[in-house]
Computed example of a mutant assay.
Amino acid sequence: MIRKTLFAIGLLTTTLLASTACSAQPAAGKPFKETVVVDLDSPWAMTFLPDGRALVTEKDGRMLMVFIASKDRTSSVTATMPVAGIPKIDSGGQGALMDVVLAPGFASNKLVYFSGSITGEGGKGVALWRGKLVEDSRGPRLDGVEELFRARPFVEGNGHYSGRIAFSPDGKYLFFTNGERQKFTPAQDPKMTLGKVLRLTLDGKPAPGNPLVSKGFEPEIWSYGHRNLLGIAFDKAGNLWEQEMGPKGGDEVNLIKPGLNYGWPNASNGSNYDGTDIPDHKPGDGYEPPKVFWNPVISPGGLMIYSGAMFPQWKGDAFIGGLSSKSLVRVHLNGTNAAKGDQWDMGARIREVEQGPDGAIWLLEDGGDSQGRLLKLTAK
């Protein structure tokens, strides 16, 4: 790949990239072809616009509009433009500009929801915003950005923010993940949103009918007892799936149901990093067990449930990015059950998995504090 950078001042700074045919490589032993589309700077999440362009977030607080040209299942990036209007992000440690998801009805309302880690009273935490995507002579930007929600409380530290977003199939509600910030016990505390899956209105308010209000929980809480929730998605039947990082072992895929306690830090199929034991999930312990767990870990990143036609054999299955495992992981979903499928070595930390408009599978390499690539996987 040949990269040419045009330096300019202001919002219209644009990076032009020319790709060559050699960027597409059949992967030995893999049922897909990998194409390196573009190099990015520690990307975190992406979503496709209706016209095939993409919005990509980067760790340091940038959002990019990525212009993608596709032909005969190959793709190249013709330009990237920064999207203005993003609030100041605290990107220390695991902090980042995080998820980005188009609103229900985006074709008419142009609203974009996104999340990130910020500094505030008490320390740091994850926040949720919404803005309107505007494109004119000034370049792409999010106008009228408003903070809809922030985790409670803010605490010291740089880990386990989570910050993943999913909309209910009817488009009425927003599900938002809050990690337990490496503090363990907040996941069981009914007066904190940390270590929880939240159900909100599209304006960021507590959704009516949340299941734990009568038991004294904060009104946003949908489920609790979670650790670091880095993927959440609905399947075609309306089931809500979530994956989270366990401690030393015990990475999980969970079927999220209203009002249930998923156990952390009282139950886990892993152990603490200092070697002390955590009781495993077992029948009758009062905690909802995972549908699938890994020991040793895969370090799960993004979660996508596949619905495309390019890989019909995987329709309805979940795909997970593996960070420390440097892998792409497939989980077979069958109704409300799940089982381990394939795990392909990708040679790099995979932060995000996304389905493209043509049914291709797109990956973002994590990159850590350095470059990470955008990859396109197509059928051989």
Rank of each mutant, 00 (worst) to 15 (best):
Pro219Lys: 07
Thr57His: 06
Trp129His: 12
Ala54Phe: 08
Ile68Ala: 15
Ser137Glu: 14
Val77Tyr: 01
Val83Leu: 01
Lys215Gln: 15
Ala69Val: 04
Val112Pro: 02
Arg150Gln: 12
His226Gly: 09
Asp342Ser: 08
His160Ile: 09
Arg150Asp: 14
Pro104Asn: 04
Lys30Gly: 09
Arg130Val: 04
Val101Ser: 07
Leu333Gln: 15
Ser223Pro: 04
Met346Asp: 01
Cys22His: 11
Leu16Val: 13
Glu220Trp: 00
Arg138Glu: 09
Gly163Gln: 01
Ala233Arg: 03
Arg152Cys: 13
Val37Gln: 08
Gly29Lys: 09
Trp344Pro: 02
Phe319His: 11
Lys376Thr: 01
Ile298Leu: 01
Pro219Ile: 09
Lys71Pro: 02
Asn266Ile: 04
Leu16Cys: 03
Leu6Gly: 10
Gly275Trp: 00
Asp72Leu: 15
Lys248Val: 14
Gly131Arg: 14
Val297Ser: 12
Val112Ala: 02
Lys59Pro: 07
Thr47Cys: 03
Gly116Val: 06
Val56Met: 04
Gly61Ala: 08
His332Glu: 03
Ser324Lys: 01
Leu230Lys: 14
Val329Thr: 11
Ala84Asp: 02
Thr80Cys: 13
Lys71Ile: 00
Phe48Glu: 08
Pro289Lys: 15
Lys124Gln: 00
Pro26Thr: 02
Gly171Cys: 13
Asp251Val: 12
Asn158Phe: 02
Phe234Glu: 08
Asp317Gly: 06
Pro82Ser: 11
Leu240Asn: 06
Gly231Gln: 11
Ser23Ile: 12
Pro190Gln: 15
Lys30Met: 11
Phe149Lys: 13
Ser168His: 02
Ser19Arg: 10
Gly286Arg: 13
Leu374Lys: 02
Ala237Thr: 01
Ser75Ile: 02
Ala339Lys: 14
His332Gly: 15
Ser108Phe: 05
Asn178Ser: 15
Ser137Asn: 15
Ser70Ile: 13
Gly347Lys: 14
Leu148Ala: 07
Asp90Arg: 03
Tyr224Trp: 10
Pro43Val: 12
Gly61Cys: 06
Phe32Ile: 09
Ala28Phe: 06
Gly301Ser: 12
Thr35Asn: 13
Pro312Gln: 14
Pro26Asn: 03
Glu288His: 04
Leu202Gly: 12
Lys88Ile: 10
Val155Ile: 05
Pro300Cys: 12
Lys33Ala: 15
Glu58Pro: 11
Val37Thr: 13
Gly144Ala: 08
Gly105Thr: 02
Gly159Thr: 08
Glu135Asn: 14
Phe311Val: 09
Ser324Ile: 10
Leu102Arg: 12
Lys124Ser: 15
Ala54Tyr: 00
Pro186Met: 05
Tyr306Ile: 14
Asp285Asn: 09
Gly144Asn: 01
Glu180Ala: 07
Thr57Glu: 02
Val155Glu: 11
Phe175Val: 12
Thr47Glu: 04
Leu64His: 08
Pro357Trp: 05
Ile350Met: 03
Val101Met: 08
Val101Gln: 10
Asp143Pro: 11
Phe114Trp: 09
Pro296Cys: 15
Gly204Ile: 12
Glu365Arg: 06
Asp143Ala: 11
Val112Arg: 05
Ala309Tyr: 03
Pro258Lys: 13
